[in-house]
């Protein structure tokens, strides 16, 4: 594979959801390229097809037209190299935090076959990962004994435990209060700086996008396509204080203008 080949590539992708009257055109003519190790954010007005984009990339929904490829391979079904975290709770209430984090290793090849034999090693890794997000000492708690922010920290660990090449985040912090959300930006940035997985974050929070991403893509109103791509040239590690600096504020303002334009189009 040539170095300049994007890790995630969508070319002229359309997706129509079946339904009455010919269905709903969710995205149309969608082009997107994300380099290996890049942190990309996708923002847009609500209902623009951001979640559809997530499903296309992960193979949860097949494209009606165009092509989707990840790691140089065309996506034809659910991908195994992806970690995911969502706004909704997906930690199983009857499993401890540790057992929830271990879950992907029980399901995903190649770990599945050796999971029982190598459990001790996996447990050690899961504990270390939980410690990096500030959850040392909470391994044996159940999700319902944790705050919302702690649950999302654990969800990030679950998404990363099998060391996926691609992390997909679908508004993972949207249900949290502002302070907790901002705290978790720092946690996520730290994980990414240490591991440099390719990441796609779907969010409607422009400050979140600018704080975290190398590149922010703006989607149009439905049917969604990318109408603007903005490189975020802020130095890392980024800080909360920095998010009140003039350049950061300008970037957010610029993106807000693009989205306003996208909304009035639709």
């Amino acid at each position: 594979m040539r170095a300049e080949t994007p890790f995630v590539a969508l070319e002229r992708v359309s997706l129509t959801y079946a339904g009455e009257g010919g269905g709903t055109l969710a995205v149309e003519g969608l082009d997107l390229a994300i380099a290996r190790g890049e942190f990309a954010a996708v923002v847009g007005p609500s209902g623009c097809g951001k979640s559809t984009l997530m499903k296309l990339v992960t193979g949860l929904a097949p494209a009606s037209a165009g092509s989707v490829s990840v790691g140089g391979h065309r996506v034809a079904g659910p991908l195994k190299i992806v970690g995911m975290a969502f706004q909704n709770p997906t930690l199983l209430p009857w499993r401890t935090t540790l057992d929830n984090v271990l879950l992907p290793l029980e399901i995903v090849a190649p770990h599945r076959a050796s999971f029982r034999r190598e459990r001790a090693r996996h447990v050690e890794r899961a504990r270390a990962l939980l410690a990096t997000v500030g959850l040392a000492g909470f391994e044996d708690k159940y999700p319902w004994q944790l705050s919302g922010g702690m649950q999302q920290r654990a969800s990030l660990c679950r998404a990363l435990i099998h060391e996926p090449e691609l992390l997909m985040l679908d508004e993972p912090f949207a249900a949290l209060d502002a302070f907790t959300r901002e705290e978790l930006w720092g946690v996520l940035q730290e994980l990414w700086l240490a591991r440099r997985f390719t990441c796609i974050l779907v969010t409607h929070d422009l400050r979140e996008a600018v704080y975290l991403a190398d590149t922010v893509h703006v989607m149009s109103a439905r049917p969604g396509r990318i109408i603007a791509t903005r490189a975020i040239d802020l130095p890392r590690p980024r800080t909360l204080e920095g998010s009140f600096g003039p350049h950061f504020v300008d970037l957010v303002h610029e993106l807000r203008g693009r989205i306003a334009a996208a909304r009035s189009e639709g």
Partner: peptide
């Protein structure tokens, strides 16, 4: 067996795979 208000199915896996999770664990 537990059922809650929210389904807690793992979105990235098929229904079958979701059922196989506890079965594999039990062995």
């Amino acid at each position: 067996g537990f059922v809650f208000q929210f389904h807690f199915l793992l979105p990235e896996f098929t229904t079958l795979d979701n059922l196989l999770i506890p079965m594999r664990r039990l062995g």
